[in-house]
Design a protein around this nucleic acid. Structure first.
Lengths: 346, 346
DNA sequence: CTGAAAGCGCTTACAG
DNA sequence: CTGAAAGCGCTTACAG
C-alpha cells in the first residue's frame, strides 16, 4: 500500500499545527481556528486524500469500533441473512465485524475469544445456526455481548431469539384450521433445543384443538433424510393427510416423495415447513406454506442492542423473543377434498 | 471490558523496564536479559494474564494482520465453505478477516474499500459467488489483493478460479460415455461468465464426440425455475434422455419434475448437476452425479497467495485455475436401458 | 486564537 | 547486561 498522508502531512501543507488539523477535521474548528486556516486545512486534506488512520484512532480512544462475531457453522452454515443484515446494521454506525468460526470446539473457541480480546473488539456477537443453549465463558460476561439465536441458560447475557414454540403452533394451526386431523411430524436433530421446542409447539396446538398430538418421526437434516421418513410415514397404514417438517431440507424431501408417490400437493397431501431461510421451500411447485424465522430483523436487533450498550446505555440484560410469522403459500388444502382421487400406485 | 494489564504493569510487577518485558516476551531475552529477570518477567506476565494489545502492535508495526474481504452475496450467498476455509487458513497465520458485503453497488463498494483502507488492512480478498469478471478499482492495484472466483479482465491482479469450461465438459462427457445423444441443458443466468463457460464446455464435449451440441434452455436459478424448464423440455417431442443443469437448484427442480412425471432416475432419465456446493444434489434420492467446484481448496489457495505476498514474496501476478472433479453418484445411466418402460402419463 | 506537550501501548535502536 | 528515548498517528487538555 502506498504510504498514506498523515495529519502531519496535512498540517505541513496547510502551514498549521497537527492539532489544528485535528480540530478542523473533527468539526471543532469554529471559535478555535481562524476561518482562513480552516479553509487551508480542508483544502490540504482534500488534496492529499487524507483520512485518519483508524488504528491510531483506536489506540487513542481505546475503542476499535469493531465487533467480534463468534459462530459455529455446522452443516448448513449460519444464516446468510443474519450475516448480511448484521454487517449492514453495524456498518451504518461505522462498526466493522471480525468474524470467526469455532468449528464447534470449546478449545478453539477459547483461543478465538482471546484473539478477539487482544484485538480489542468493543463487543461480541455470538450467533448460532440453530436455537440452542449457550453458556458464555467468563470474558463474555465482562464485555458487552449479545447472543443471537442462542440463549444463556443462566440468563446473565442478553439474547435475541425466535419463538420456536409459537412457530410450531402456527404450523399446526394452519393445518388444523383446514380440517386436518392426522398430521405427520418429521424432525431433524431431535435432541436440539430448536427441535424440541418446535415439536412442543406442534403438539400443544393439536392438543388445544382436541386432536391427538403428532408423534415426531426422527428423520435427519437433509433432503434424503426427509424423503426416507416421508416415504415411511406416507406408506404406512392410515397415512397422515398433512406433514409438518421442522427443517427446510426435510420439507424438500417430503415434496419429492409426494411427487414420486403421485400425491398432489395440496389436494392429496398438505405440507408445511418450519423453515424457509434457504429459499428452498418457497421456490417449490407449489410454493410451500412455511413459518418464517425473521433472521434479518433478529440480526439487526442484536447488533442494535450491542450498539446501544456500547453507546452507554444501561447494561441491563434483555431477552428479546421474535415472533415467527406464518407465510401462507399454496401447499395447504383441506383433507379429503377430492375423495375419488387415490394415490397412484408406485 | 475490565482494564487489561499492559507491558508497563508487567514491568512494574517484575521490577524491570518496559523494554525488558518486550524483549523477554518476544523471545529475544537470551543474551540481553539475565536469567533471573527473565523468569520474573514471565511470572509477572502469567500472573497478570498479560497479552500485548494488538492495536498498539499494529500502530507500531504498521501491519494489522487483518485481511479485508469484499463480497457481494447475491441470491444464494457466497459459499459458506469459502468463508469457512478462508477463515481457517488466515487464522493459522494469525490473520483475521474483516468481512464486508457490497450489495452489488459500486458506490457502496467504493466506500467500503475506503473504510477497509482506513482500517489499515494488509490485503484484500475479493470473493464472488459466481465466476465473473471483476475490474479492481485503483486501491486494489496498490495493495496486495487476490480475486477469488472472479477474474481481472486486464490480468493485472492475481486470481483463483475454477475451470468452468472443463466442468461443463466433464458433465457432458459422463453422459456421452453412457451413450446419451439427446442431452438437454438447463442454464441459469445466461449472461454470466460462469454460465457461458459452462455451456461452452458442454457443447465442446458434445461436438468432440460427434453429437449435436445441446442448445441451452434458459431457466433461472431456483428450484421452480428448474422445474418449469425441465417440464417443458421433457414434454416436448423427442425429449432428451439426459439433462445437465448449470445450477444446483435447477437440478433439484429437474429431479422433482422427473418424480412428478414418473420418470425414474437414472433408468428413464439421467441427471447431472454442475454444482453441489449447497449439498442439495448430493442428498437427493438417488444422489446426483455432479461436478464439484473445490471451494475450500480455492479459498485456502487464495488466502495462501495473499499471505505469501504479505510475507514478502515477489509481487508477481498469479492466475490459478482449479480443476473441478466429477463426482459420480447414481443419477447417470444408459439411455434406453429399459425400452419397455414408458413415462407414466401425467 | 494557536502551538507544544502528553499519552494511548507497543518495540527497537541507542546509550551507558 | 539494562534503562531511557524515540516513534507509529492520532486527539485533547494546557500554556501562551
Amino acid at each position: 500500500m502506498a504510504r498514506r498522508a498523515t495529519a502531519q502531512d496535512v498540517a505541513d501543507l496547510a502551514g498549521v499545527s497537527r492539532s489544528a488539523v485535528s480540530l478542523v477535521l473533527n468539526g471543532r474548528g469554529a471559535g478555535n481556528i481562524s476561518e482562513e486556516k480552516q479553509k487551508a486545512v480542508r483544502a490540504a486534506a482534500a488534496q492529499l486524500d487524507y483520512t485518519p488512520n483508524a488504528v491510531a484512532l483506536s489506540l487513542r480512544s481505546r475503542r476499535t469500533r469493531t465487533l467480534g462475531v463468534l459462530t459455529w457453522p455446522g452443516v448448513v452454515g449460519f444464516s446468510q441473512t443474519m450475516l448480511h443484515r448484521a454487517l449492514r446494521k453495524a456498518g451504518e454506525h461505522s462498526y466493522l465485524l471480525l468474524v470467526m468460526d469455532t468449528d464447534d470446539d470449546a478449545e478453539v473457541e477459547r483461543r478465538q475469544l482471546d484473539t478477539l480480546r487482544d484485538r480489542q473488539v468493543d463487543g461480541f456477537l455470538v450467533v448460532s445456526p440453530a436455537l440452542a443453549h449457550y453458556r458464555p465463558p467468563e470474558v463474555l460476561h465482562s464485555t458487552p455481548t449479545v447472543l443471537l439465536n442462542c440463549l444463556d441458560p443462566d440468563g446473565a447475557v442478553s439474547s435475541v431469539t425466535p419463538d420456536e414454540v409459537q412457530a410450531g403452533q402456527r404450523a399446526a394451526e394452519v393445518l388444523l384450521r383446514h380440517g386436518h386431523r392426522r398430521i405427520g411430524l418429521l424432525v431433524g436433530d431431535p435432541g436440539s433445543l430448536q427441535s424440541r421446542l418446535r415439536v412442543a409447539g406442534v403438539q400443544q396446538a393439536a392438543t388445544a384443538a382436541g386432536v391427538e398430538p403428532p408423534q415426531p418421526v426422527v428423520a435427519g437434516r437433509n433432503i434424503d433424510d426427509g424423503a426416507r421418513a416421508a416415504r415411511a410415514v406416507l406408506s404406512g397404514p392410515e397415512p397422515p393427510t398433512a406433514l409438518v417438517c421442522t427443517h427446510e431440507r426435510l420439507a424438500v424431501g417430503a415434496a419429492l416423495v409426494a411427487a414420486e408417490l403421485g400425491l398432489r400437493v395440496p389436494q392429496d397431501l398438505s405440507l408445511v415447513s418450519l423453515e424457509d431461510g434457504e429459499r428452498l421451500t418457497s421456490r417449490l411447485d407449489p410454493p410451500m406454506t412455511t413459518v418464517h424465522r425473521p433472521d434479518g430483523a433478529m440480526a439487526e436487533q442484536a447488533v442494535g442492542l450491542l450498539l446501544e450498550r456500547l453507546g452507554g446505555a444501561s447494561p441491563e440484560i434483555r431477552r428479546m423473543v421474535f415472533s415467527c410469522p406464518l407465510r401462507e403459500r399454496a401447499s395447504v388444502g383441506c383433507p379429503g377434498r377430492a375423495p375419488g382421487v387415490l394415490p397412484r400406485p408406485r
